[in-house]
Amino acid sequence: MEKQKWKRYWNVISSNNLGLLGISLLVIFLLIALLAPLLAPFDPTARVGAPFSKPNGDFLLGTNDIGQDILSELLYGTRVSLLIGILAALISIILGCLVGIVSGYYGGKVDSFLMRLVDLVLVIPFLPLMILLAAFIGPSFWNIILVISLLSWASPARVIRSQVLTLKTKGYVEAARSIGTSIKVILFRHILPGVIPIALSQFVMAASHSILIEASLSFLGLGDPFTKSWGTILYYAQARGAFLTDAWIWWVLPPGLLITTLVIGFAFTGYSLEEILNPRLRKER
């Protein structure tokens, strides 16, 4: 039965061109992140050429203002941007699951309190709060992940709560309650399996948003200055005059395109997962 379910899921994905494209893009970026030391022609922190060298046979994407190879920076930056996006999304989804499950299952005053907290997080202007938290906590790799997680859990919590409200009225859950099954067993054996598919879809979309947020914070100078993400590459390009010369073509354009492509990969994958979870979205084939 389980094998047939996963086979059905794969049939839905394989018949969805956008889903296949999204998964392919994510696999490519994951391979780049894992193989960055082998693919990068130079150490991204080393000065290997003349400043503002144009793309040539030695430096395929030229060099920055201090002579570092931009291609090597981008390859290593894939690791940082992807890792921040995945970790921040994972933490936010875990928080969202905890809040959504507790709120949806217990209801009453617990539900009212947690949902008012969710409303508070969602109603506060996102960009000013994000900048304020990042500036207050300080720029570092883990602080960026913390800021993104604190601002991204509320929306998944609301979606997961809705799923829990539906699941707890199912016959098998009510039967488990009636025979005195412990809450722990009900949550982990009956509620959580029904939440995981929704959480997976929310995780993919949260990773996409996290990568955009990290790039935005880094571009504003609030990222970790000791790590080379795509956002910090854009920040240094803007701060050191890339837009005043032709250097923007090989210093600004490539990281911008990489961010856009990775976000598209996550978005297309998320859409295919939503099609799996919601049969009404599937086209007649």
Rank of each mutant, 00 (worst) to 15 (best):
L31M: 14
L34T: 06
F52P: 01
N64P: 06
L31D: 01
G49T: 03
L30E: 02
I32D: 05
L60G: 02
S24G: 14
A40E: 04
G57R: 12
L39G: 02
G49S: 15
G49Q: 06
F52T: 09
N64A: 11
L60E: 08
L31V: 15
I32L: 15
P55I: 08
L26D: 09
P37S: 07
A46L: 07
L34C: 10
G57L: 14
P41E: 01
A46C: 04
A36R: 07
G62W: 00
F42G: 02
A33K: 00
V27T: 12
I28R: 11
L34M: 13
A46G: 09
L35P: 03
A33M: 04
A40S: 14
L34A: 13
P44T: 03
V27G: 04
S24W: 09
L61D: 07
L25S: 10
P41M: 10
L31A: 14
N56I: 04
T45I: 03
D43W: 00
G62F: 03
A50G: 08
A50T: 12
T63G: 10
P41Y: 09
L60Q: 12
L30T: 15
L26S: 08
I23A: 15
F29Q: 06
D43Q: 05
A40I: 00
L30Q: 08
L25R: 00
L30S: 15
L60D: 03
F52N: 13
L60I: 14
T45F: 12
L39I: 06
F52W: 14
V48P: 02
T63E: 00
I28N: 05
L34H: 00
L38N: 03
